Amino acid sequence: MKKVAFITGASKGIGLEIARIHAAHGDDLILTARSLHDLQEIKTHFECEYPVKVTIIAKDLSMAGSAEEVFDEIKQQHIDVDYLVNNAGFGDYGYFADTNWDRYSAMINLNISSLTELCHLFISDWQGRKAGKILNVASTAAFQPGPKMAVYFATKAYVLSFSQAIGQEVKKDGITITAFCPGPTNTNFMDDSQMIVSRMVAGHKLPAPKEVARCAYKAMISGKSVAIHGTKNRIMANLNRFVPRSWATKITDKLL
């Protein structure tokens, strides 16, 4: 029987490439993003290229109540989801006080609230199935405080901690939760967040989203609790465990 993957933030970058991998494996798709036009183009392309059905739902998951609205629409269409990929998210580069609060509020709603609610809705729905896989896209930002991207780093620390905690809880139910932690990647995120000007990114060759997505998909399918893309990123994330947080904060400040 065909499996179904529900992917948020699926219109570009890592989310789009994860969707492409699922389609190549014959999984039907439910894709969510803000742009209906982009989703329609992806649906047309994927259904021509792969033997899959693509359901699209245009929704801004940073808005209150949007996660439940998407879940209800999926249930109304009588679609059973096997894979939940919480990929949607955004960041912002600059001093905390210089950014409008509305942007931070939307970031927290998207990166934390909607992700958490979707996990709750689907895990509750999966009770008794002894199956189901969730991929929560965190970041290497999850491993230390991030001056000049304080709220973004903090939201990703939440995603990592939350994913590990509920992953332990649902083992008995046959459900796996994977927190995936990519480093800077060559996607629109760099421009949207203005992180492109930081020392961490400027002048560096960044991995392509296709490469990062393959790592994410493999980690989810194998049921890994935490996966970090790239040898350098894995080393840095693990080094942070042995460095005082005050040092890690200063180092990140200089890199950003």
Rank of each mutant, 00 (worst) to 15 (best):
T99N: 11
P184Q: 04
L110K: 14
S124H: 13
K2P: 02
K3R: 12
L118Y: 04
L16P: 03
F189L: 14
A150M: 03
S35M: 00
Q40F: 01
S105V: 07
V243F: 14
I251V: 14
F153P: 00
F46P: 08
V212D: 11
I123K: 14
T99L: 13
A237R: 00
A5T: 04
I235V: 13
Q127H: 11
A216H: 00
H120M: 04
N186L: 08
A202T: 12
A131C: 06
P244L: 09
D192M: 10
T178L: 12
N238W: 08
Q164P: 01
A19C: 07
R234N: 11
K205P: 00
F122N: 04
I14K: 07
K148G: 00
H204W: 08
G13M: 02
I166F: 01
G13D: 07
V243I: 15
D102L: 09
V226P: 02
M107D: 08
I123A: 14
R103L: 05
G128L: 01
R199L: 05
G94I: 06
N87R: 03
A219W: 08
Q40D: 07
F143Q: 12
A237L: 05
S124E: 12
A58C: 02
D82H: 15
K3H: 12
A141Y: 04
K59V: 02
P145E: 03
Q144T: 04
V52A: 13
I123D: 13
K156D: 01
V151G: 08
T249A: 12
A219C: 05
K156L: 07
D98V: 00
A219S: 10
V170F: 14
G203H: 09
H25P: 00
Y152F: 14
V85C: 13
I108G: 11
A67E: 08
H45T: 11
N238D: 04
P207D: 12
G26N: 05
R241N: 15
Y93K: 14
M1T: 09
F122M: 08
G65V: 05
L135Y: 02
A179V: 01
Y104K: 03
G223W: 10
I42Q: 02
P244I: 09
Y93D: 11
Q76H: 13
T178Y: 12
A106S: 11
T178Q: 05
L118V: 02
Y93N: 15
M200P: 00
L160C: 10
S139F: 04
S246N: 08
L121F: 11
A213T: 01
V197K: 15
G146W: 03
L160M: 12
K232N: 05
V4S: 08
G91I: 07
V151H: 06
G15I: 02
E41H: 10
K254W: 13
T185K: 04
K205A: 05
K59S: 15
Y50N: 03
K172P: 00
G167W: 02
A142C: 05
A24M: 11
H229Y: 15
T55C: 10
T249N: 13
A138R: 10
